[in-house]
Design a protein around this nucleic acid. Structure first.
Lengths: 216, 216
DNA sequence: TAGATTGTTAATCGATTAACAATC
DNA sequence: TAGATTGTTAATCGATTAACAATC
């Protein structure tokens, strides 16, 4: 398989397109032009056409885009039906919230295991999945071959587990910890740094002025 | 107060600088050059110097940067000591995790209220704060004047509450919902779209190859 | 056919990187 | 002073926007 040629800003916009198209579909809207979609989403029509054309010509001149068709196309590009096997590590508050809050099958994943080191938690269940001892992790991985790990653990624990998981064949990380993956780790990482996000908001508030509102 | 002149990519890197400098400080490291910091963080030295110079000259030629001084400077730029009054809306799994997981004072905020609409939750406490009925929200705001609201509620509830909160003087939102703020809302918004982040990861996994690893 | 809207190329804008003179 | 490293300007790179010919 060859390198993905599509730039990161484009890819990060895909889930939002997917969401808007889902809304349009459930409103019964059949077709939409890049211009109208751009107005609803707060983008330029140019950008939408450029983004979509990274993956193919989904529209029709003079008509626009068929909402359902485009949505399905983006769904398949994202791989929302792929059912990637994932494990979650850390059954604390954050792990519990992620487990309860995220509809994994809808987002392209299947949650097949939860791990923790706390004896009080091991053996209990979370969203129907039994919590396993983290020292059985490698055994579990060689048997079940998850491709994705979700880090809801502190930085130090993440630092210890990351190399082991990578060696076990884990290719992607949804990283809520402050551990920094190295570029040569050769894995796909999505960082969710909540504290960083909140501090960015603090900056925005402390430098708030009439004309400096939202800018992603 | 005039418009912030610093670009969004720069601002989003500040919390990460802050974190790394904190680590360096706790390791007892007193000075650091942009070059060494760049190697540790996986950035270019140029970028670090450019970023910092948006806010002032914190370094010294031939020496580099004093770790503690620089960290304190960034802390003040971010406003981590500002104690912005914040309220959290939605005491479900996500709200509970955020409340338990985030050290608000350390990130520039003071959590002064939690709201929900569920009678089973109202009156109970979360991290020492009593959960109030969401129908008392406006009254609470006019009395206590929070500047920030944290949305841990579904899209529809967010859509209903956002205008009210903005009218009440709330200037910033930490938005975990799928509600989209409009540019003319004239507020500061930090979106944390967990489902979007996870789908981006799905894309990365489904298009994984040897050479296409992490790219923020 | 005429009108609308795409796909795509060209122009612009902004962010990152490189270079180097200033200076500690 | 000589060496190191910043602050800052200039060059490059990439992403966004504008324009328009192709075409449904």
């Amino acid at each position: 398989m060859s390198k993905s040629l599509v730039s990161s800003p484009v890819i990060k916009r895909l889930p939002r397109y997917y969401r808007f198209l889902g809304d349009l579909e459930s409103q019964g809207i059949v077709r939409i032009s890049s211009r109208e979609l751009s107005q609803r989403m707060g983008l330029t029509a140019s950008q939408i056409r450029q983004d979509l054309n990274c993956f193919g010509g989904f529209g029709q001149q003079g008509y626009g885009y068929n909402v359902s068709e485009l949505r399905e196309a983006i769904r398949d590009i994202l791989g929302v039906n792929a059912g990637n096997k994932a494990i979650l590590i850390g059954a604390g508050n954050l792990g519990r919230a992620v487990t309860a809050h995220i509809d994994f099958p809808k987002r392209g994943f299947e949650l097949i295991g939860i791990f923790d080191s706390d004896p009080d938690k091991i053996g209990k269940t979370m969203s129907g999945i039994s919590i396993s001892n983290v020292n059985t992790l490698e055994e579990f991985c060689s048997k079940n071959e998850p491709v994705c790990a979700i880090f809801c653990i502190p930085k130090d624990a993440a630092a210890k587990l990351a190399p082991k998981l990578i060696a076990s064949g884990v290719k992607g990380f949804w990283n809520f910890s402050h551990y920094d993956f190295k570029p040569d780790d050769d894995v796909v990482v999505e960082n969710v740094h909540l504290a960083d996000s909140l501090m960015t908001l603090a900056y925005g508030l402390n430098n708030y002025s009439e004309d400096s509102a939202e800018k992603k």
